[in-house]
């Protein structure tokens, strides 16, 4: 007897669980051949709110993990992604990619996670500094995570754009709420399943599907979001980000990059979501050139 096909329900990812959207709405994106990709959750502003609450709750614990442990977890995501490679390739092809490009995109995503996994316990040393000052202070600057980051993911790719922003943001100890590609949402949902199986604490990454045009506003005006990352080139979106972010002076970073290029990854993407804290620590100038000892 032939088994019935069990079709997958694509759900959103909030606080480490997979609820349906609070609104109960869905949309049905099509691929280039006109086939339905699936019934995808059309998230609402209340899902945004719930995600931000989850991200804020997860922030303390995640930012206090040791750098080494964060690196291990990012590497673990890469391992899990590797294990489900064929599923991602299938989904990418279904969403209009060629087989070669699909394989390339998944491999690039895995590489990118490994790349940022490596940075986890190193960026602090590079971004931090000991500063010369003209008083008897030991003066040093260190990088600290910005907080909860809202991410408007690349709309033209399904996986690599998503991974390319999530990885540096969480590598730096932030938590995030991600708006997935509206037209190609499948890999975002499956990537959430990978995250869920990778020791990433619930709430560190939250992924919503739906219309960015509807969700950007509640996300960027949210007083508990500390930074926004936008991948894309829409003037309207950029203006919206600038305007709404003024409410609580969110840090905004916009990227217009071809994420498939191997060199579109670097330390400065981590640095974009770090705050530099400088400490003036009073010292007696023992052992200095003017020392009386």
């Amino acid at each position: 007897m032939k088994n019935l096909d069990v079709l997958k329900t694509y759900k959103i990812y909030i606080g480490g669980s997979f609820p349906r959207t609070e609104s109960g709405r869905y949309y049905t994106p099509l691929n280039q051949k006109g086939e339905q990709l699936g019934n995808i959750c059309q998230s609402s502003r209340k899902d945004v709110r719930n995600s931000v609450v989850a991200a804020r709750k997860a922030f303390g614990g995640w930012s206090e993990r040791t750098a080494f442990n964060r690196g291990q977890i990012l590497y673990r995501i890469a391992e899990m992604l590797q294990g489900r490679k064929s599923q991602f390739i299938e989904e990418l092809i279904f969403q209009g990619s060629s087989k070669t490009n699909a394989e390339k995109e998944v491999n690039r995503s895995i590489d990118r996670l490994v790349y940022y996994a490596g940075w986890c316990d190193k960026y602090m040393q590079i971004l931090g500094s000991v500063n010369p000052v003209a008083s008897s202070h030991f003066n040093f600057s260190i990088a600290e995570p910005t907080g909860v980051v809202g991410v408007v993911s690349d709309q033209t790719t399904s996986l690599i754009g998503l991974v390319s922003l999530i990885a540096p943001i969480i590598a730096g100890g932030n938590t995030c709420v991600v708006l997935a590609s509206e037209g190609m949402p499948l890999c975002a949902v499956t990537f959430a399943e990978v995250l869920n199986a990778s020791d990433v604490p619930g709430g560190v990454v939250n992924i919503l599907t739906g219309s960015p045009s509807e969700l950007i506003k509640p996300l960027t005006t949210h007083m508990d979001v500390n930074a926004m990352a936008y991948s894309g080139d829409s003037t309207e979106v950029k203006a919206e980000l600038q305007q709404s972010s003024a409410l609580n002076l969110k840090r905004i970073s916009t990227y217009m990059k071809d994420w498939m290029k191997p060199n579109n990854q670097d330390l400065y993407l981590i640095a974009d979501f770090q705050e530099i804290k400088t400490t003036w620590h009073p010292i007696e100038n023992i052992g200095g050139s003017s020392s009386v000892y």
Binding site: V52, T221, H222, M223, D224, N248
Partner: peptide
Amino acid sequence: TGVYQSSNY
């Protein structure tokens, strides 16, 4: 205000 709030404030 129509804007979600943060406990920071």
